[in-house]
Amino acid sequence: MIIERPSSARGRIQAGWLDSRHTFSFGGYYDPAWMGFGALRVINEDRVAAGAGFEPHRHANMEILSYVLSGGLSHKDSAGGGGVIRAGELQWMSAGHGVEHSEYNASDSEPVHFLQIWIQPDRLNARPAYAQLEAADARDGEFVLLASRDGVDGGLPVRQDLRLYALSLTPGASARRVLEAGRLYWLQLAQGRIEVDGRTLEAGDALGFREESAELVLTGSGDSGAQLLFFDLPPAG
């Protein structure tokens, strides 16, 4: 089964300093048809105005990833984690048994644009943890591993049986990915335009794959490069 999630169908929250598009139910946006996809619980596309951000708040038992598309995001948490995440970089915070954190735009003059991602962990009440992955040098059409279960094969050591990849495609460039029927897959287009087996995806669009055994062919199109995240997830319990 292939699930389509167009950008225009997402929830939207605007708060002056924040413009947020929600792929799944979150906060003030609720749709019982879109409560998550397996262990993938949240993908919020956030644009935060200069000098603004999310004040300290608490989470527990959630893997929280922030992937910056432009600008800089400043993070601080009660477990000692902190730093500024720049474009192409990924931050991981495992809330574990409980942690308080804040995120602010690191600039006083430019907005920050990033994806906030929540993954349900495979273990509860672990010790909170934090790490940051710098932007990787990658060839056009190459899947780059950003995160994996406990850091297997590199990437950030998330506490779930997943592999998260980034992929960049210039117009006309292609990449291939084999899907296994026993796994779930989610493709989130962050920027640009791509063609996926006869479907055209624009920035913010997504596809989910359940019980699909096939080879995906992804091709960059449009006038500029495309950037996407690809989630390889365990089957829903």
Rank of each mutant, 00 (worst) to 15 (best):
R183Q: 13
G237Y: 09
L164R: 09
S168K: 15
M35P: 00
L156E: 02
G141T: 13
L73E: 04
G225N: 15
V68C: 10
G225L: 07
L187K: 09
A138M: 11
V99G: 04
H97Q: 11
H59P: 10
Q227C: 12
G225S: 14
G81Y: 06
M93G: 04
N105M: 04
E202T: 01
P171L: 12
A236H: 11
I13Q: 05
Q227I: 00
V178Q: 14
R176E: 05
E55T: 04
R86C: 03
D19L: 13
G71P: 10
P157T: 08
P32D: 15
E142H: 08
N44F: 07
T200W: 10
I194Y: 07
L133W: 03
A190D: 06
Q132V: 10
G222A: 10
D205Y: 02
N61Y: 09
A206L: 07
W17C: 01
R159L: 14
A236D: 08
M62Q: 12
R123M: 03
F54S: 11
A129E: 14
D232F: 04
G155S: 13
E202I: 01
Q14E: 12
G82M: 00
A126T: 11
L233R: 01
F114R: 09
V99P: 06
G237T: 07
R149F: 01
F24D: 01
V178T: 11
L162H: 03
V112E: 03
R183L: 09
G151R: 00
I64S: 03
S107L: 07
T219Q: 15
D122M: 08
R177Y: 15
G80W: 08
L73Q: 08
G36V: 07
G83E: 03
A39H: 02
E45T: 01
R41P: 02
F230A: 05
R176Q: 06
S8K: 14
S70V: 01
E103G: 01
G237E: 13
